[in-house]
């Protein structure tokens, strides 16, 4: 058995089996976040796709790939969003080189 099953995405509501009040509050907030606002649904779906890659969550990648297509994004746009997430993750790792510099400097003559 794989740790991640595609079908489990459709079973998300089962998380609400225990403490349904908390799950309902989460779902109301989550769904409100998706709506058109100052940002369009399309922009929000691209943000979701980027965050899904940063988190490396297979469920989220699956869900937001579909959302991006259904809100009118194409693979060029989706790939740019994924590169943005990856670049930030890369940059976030790379800037820690300064921690290494500091650490090395502290113990070096």
């Amino acid at each position: 058995m794989a740790y991640y099953e595609e079908e489990d995405l459709g079973r998300f509501k089962e998380v609400g089996k225990h403490r349904p009040d908390l799950f309902e509050k989460f779902m109301a907030w989550y769904e409100a976040c998706q709506e058109d606002g100052a940002l369009s649904r399309r922009e929000k779906a691209l943000i979701g796709l980027a965050v899904a890659h940063a988190l490396q969550c297979p469920y989220c990648i699956d869900a937001y790939s579909q959302s991006c297509l259904e809100s009118g994004s194409n693979m060029e746009q989706m790939t740019e969003a994924i590169h943005m997430a990856s670049a930030l993750r890369g940059g976030a790792a790379l800037i820690h080189a300064l921690q290494a510099h500091n650490s090395v400097d502290k113990v070096s003559m």
Partner: peptide
């Protein structure tokens, strides 16, 4: 749609 997904908003 060029695949198994729903169309985007028509106006968009």
């Amino acid at each position: 749609p060029a695949g198994a997904f729903l169309p985007p908003k028509q106006a968009a």
